[in-house]
Design a protein around this nucleic acid. Structure first.
Length: 567
DNA sequence: CTTCCCAGCGCG
DNA sequence: AAAGCGCGCTGGGAAG
C-alpha cells in the first residue's frame, strides 16, 4: 500500500480549527486512493507516521530528505518510500519509459528548462526546520504517483524500471539516515595529524609553520624570492626560470623532472591541500559533537552515483581517515565491492570468458592469467582503458588483446561508444539513460570547414568515451544501491527482532561503512556478504559469476584499505 | 566590491 | 606509471 504524504495546510480547505500539519492519502497498488485521507493535526505527524508505517507500506513524498529528516529527528523511521522527484528525474530521461502523456510532458519540460530537471531544488535551510515546509498539494502528489506507476507498468522493461525506482528511493532513505547519524569523527586525532604535518594552528589567513618553511625553501631552490607557490601562474614562471620545462604545475608532470625543487613543490602541494581542504577550518565548519554530517545528494551524478554537498564528503583523503573512529565499544565494518565495474561489465554482456575471470576474488588476476601472462598490472590497465576509452599509451596498446579474449564484453562498451559518438542515448541495465547531446553539439556535427570538423570529431569522441563509461558506471551504481537497500533491510529486520546490530554511516560509490557494537561485528560482516549476493540476484537473476566484497572489522577507517590503488 | 572560471587535487 | 570516466572544493585571477 502507498501512503502519500503532503505537508502544509493548502491541502484541506474550509476546515474549522487549526490548520493541519499534513495529510496522508492511502492508495492501492495502482496509486488510486483506497481510503479517506488522514488529516494530521499540528505536531502529530511523527506519531501518525509511526502508527501507519508497516511492512508492505511505502511512503510517497516529493523529496525524501525534506520529509524524512524531520521524522528522523523525531525518532521515527520508515520501512520503504517512493520519492516522486527522484523517480520523475529518472523517468523523464529513461529510454525504457513508454510515451505516455505524462512522460512526454516531462520531456517537454526538460527541454524548455534547459538543464535537465534532475535534482530538485531544496532550500539550504530545510534541514533546520522542525518539520518539513509545505510542499505540493495532496491531489497533485496522488496524481503524479498514478502517472508514474502507469508509466512503469507500460514500460517494455517494467520489472527493471520498477526495481530502479525502488532502489533509488531506498537509497534516499539511507542517505537521510546517514546524514542524521553522521560519521564518527575524532577531532583530537585529526588535530594531532594536522599538528604533526603542518605545525601548530596558525592565525586565520596565515600559512602553518611547516608550510611556510617549505615555501621559503622552494623560493631558494628556484632562486625566486617573491614566488607564491599557491599561484600556478607564478610558480610555472619560476619553474621555467629555473630550467624546469613543464607545461603545467601538475604533480604528475613535475614528477618527470629531477630538479631538487620538484620534491619541495610536491611536498608543499600535498601539505597545502591538507591545510586548505581538510585543515582546522574544515574541522570548525563540518564536525560537531564528534560527528561529520555532510549532505548526500542522491542521484546527483548523471550516472546515478551520489554526490555530496558540504565538506567534500566523498573525497575524504587517506591522510585524515585515521580520525574516523568508532565510539568506545563499537567497531567499523568497512566493506568494498571488489572490482565492481568490470564485474558489472561481465554481467551486462553475459560474457562467459569474463565471467570465468570474475569467478575468483581477484578479477584482474583472472584476466592476467587468461591472456596477459599473469601480469595483473597489465590486465588492470587494459580493462580500465576499455571502460574509460583510452586510446593512447600502454592501455590503448593492450586493448586488442583484451578484445580477442573477451569479445562480448568489449562489444558492449564499443557499441555504447559508437552510439554516443553518433549522438545517441545509452542506458544502464535497469534503465537510467544518459542525457542527449546538447543542441550545440548536434549542430557542430554538421560543420563544414576542416577546422570545425576536427573539433566536432573530437567532441564526438569525447561523448563516445562518456557513453562508453556510462553503461558501466551507471549499472555499477545500481548494483551498489541494491546492495545498500538489502543491507538496510537486514539491519532493520534484526533491529525489529531486538538486535540493534548497528547503522550505516558512510557510503562511497562501491564501499560502505557500518558503525556496529563490537559484539555484533561478525554478524554485520555476514549481512554485508548476504546483501551483496542478494543484490546480484535481484538485478541479474542467476549469474555464473560473483560480486565479491572485501569486509574488514576495524577501529579506524584508515585501517580499512590495504591496497591504495583503486579497485 | 562580487561573481565566475580555471587549475589543481582529493575520492571512486 | 598510466592521462581514458564521474564528481566537489579551494585559492587565484580575470571579468563585471
Amino acid at each position: 500500500m502507498y501512503l502519500v504524504l503532503a505537508t502544509g495546510s493548502r491541502q484541506v480547505r474550509d476546515r474549522p480549527g487549526p490548520e493541519p500539519e499534513a495529510c496522508i492519502q492511502p492508495a492501492g497498488e495502482d496509486g488510486t486512493p483506497s481510503a479517506p485521507a488522514v488529516v494530521v493535526p499540528p505536531g502529530d505527524l511523527p506519531d501518525a507516521v509511526r502508527r501507519l508505517d508497516a511492512p508492505g507500506t511505502r511512503w510517497v513524498w516529493a523529496g525524501t530528505r525534506r520529509h524524512y529528516l524531520p521524522l528522523l529527528r523525531a525518532g521515527v523511521t520508515v520501512e520503504r518510500c517512493h520519492d516522486l522527484l527522484l523517480s520523475r528525474a529518472i523517468l523523464a530521461h529513461s529510454a525504457f519509459a513508454p510515451r505516455t502523456p505524462y512522460i512526454l510532458g516531462l520531456q517537454d519540460a526538460a527541454e524548455q528548462d534547459g538543464p535537465p530537471a534532475g535534482q530538485p531544488e531544496q532550500p539550504e535551510q530545510s534541514a533546520l526546520f522542525e518539520a518539513a515546509p509545505p510542499g505540493p498539494p495532496l491531489e497533485e502528489l496522488v496524481q503524479e504517483l498514478g502517472r508514474q506507476l502507469e508509466a512503469v507498468a507500460l514500460s517494455p522493461l517494467s520489472a527493471r524500471l520498477r526495481l530502479l525506482l525502488a532502489a533509488e528511493s531506498a537509497g534516499s532513505l539511507v542517505a537521510a539516515e546517514m546524514e542524521y547519524a553522521g560519521v564518527p569523527w575524532h577531532t583530537d586525532v585529526h588535530r594531532q595529524i594536522l599538528a604533526e604535518q603542518l605545525g601548530p594552528r596558525p592565525a586565520d589567513g596565515q600559512r602553518p609553520r611547516k608550510l611556510e618553511a617549505l615555501a621559503a625553501r622552494l623560493r631558494g631552490e628556484l632562486d625566486s624570492p617573491g614566488v607564491n607557490p599557491d599561484s600556478p601562474q607564478e610558480l610555472l614562471r619560476a619553474l621555467h626560470r629555473a630550467g624546469i620545462e613543464v607545461g603545467s604545475t601538475r604533480s604528475w608532470e613535475l614528477r618527470e623532472h629531477n630538479h631538487p625543487a620538484v620534491a619541495t613543490v610536491l611536498r608543499y602541494k600535498k601539505l597545502s591541500r591538507l591545510h586548505t581542504a581538510n585543515g582546522w577550518a574544515w574541522l570548525d565548519a563540518w564536525v560537531r559533537d564528534g560527528r561529520f554530517r555532510p549532505e548526500y545528494v542522491v542521484g546527483g551524478v548523471v550516472t546515478g552515483r551520489w554526490a555530496s554537498r558540504g565538506g567534500g564528503a566523498l573525497q575524504i583523503p587517506r591522510q585524515v581517515r585515521g580520525a574516523v573512529r568508532p565510539d568506545p565499544g563499537w567497531k567499523f565494518v568497512v566493506a568494498d565491492a571488489a572490482q565492481l565495474e568490470p564485474r558489472v561489465l561481465a554481467a551486462l554482456a553475459r560474457d562467459p570468458a569474463l565471467a570465468a575471470a570474475a569467478r575468483g576474488r581477484d578479477l584482474y588476476q583472472g584476466i592476467a592469467d587468461a591472456g596477459f601472462g599473469g601480469d595483473r598490472a597489465q590486465a588492470k590497465v587494459a580493462m580500465l582503458g576499455a571502460m574509460y576509452g583510452a586510446t593512447t599509451g600502454e592501455s590503448g596498446r593492450l586493448l586488442p588483446r583484451l578484445a580477442r579474449t573477451y569479445p562480448q564484453a568489449i562489444a558492449v562498451v564499443e557499441r555504447a561508444a559508437r552510439t554516443g559518438e553518433a549522438g545517441g542515448v545509452v542506458s544502464s541495465y535497469l534503465g537510467r539513460s544518459c542525457p542527449p547531446p546538447s543542441e550545440r553539439w548536434v549542430a557542430a556535427q554538421r560543420s563544414t570547414t576542416a577546422q570545425e570538423q576536427r573539433r566536432a570529431d573530437a567532441a564526438a569522441r569525447s561523448r563516445g568515451r562518456f557513453t562508453r563509461n556510462f553503461v558501466v558506471q551507471a549499472t555499477a551504481a545500481e548494483w551498489a544501491l541494491c546492495w545498500l537497500a538489502e543491507l538496510r533491510r537486514r539491519l532493520r529486520t534484526l533491529a525489529a527482532e531486538g538486535t540493534a546490530a548497528g547503522e550505516l554511516v558512510f557510503f562511497l560509490h562501491d564501499e560502505v561503512v557500518l558503525h556496529v557494537r563490537g559484539e555484533h561485528a561478525a554478524l554485520a560482516c555476514r549481512l554485508v556478504e548476504e546483501s551483496a549476493a542478494a543484490a546480484t540476484r535481484l538485478m541479474f537473476g542467476q549469474l555464473p559469476l560473483e560480486f565479491a566484497v572485501s569486509v574488514a572489522v576495524v577501529d579506524s577507517y584508515a585501517e580499512a584499505k590495504q591496497d591504495p590503488g583503486r579497485a
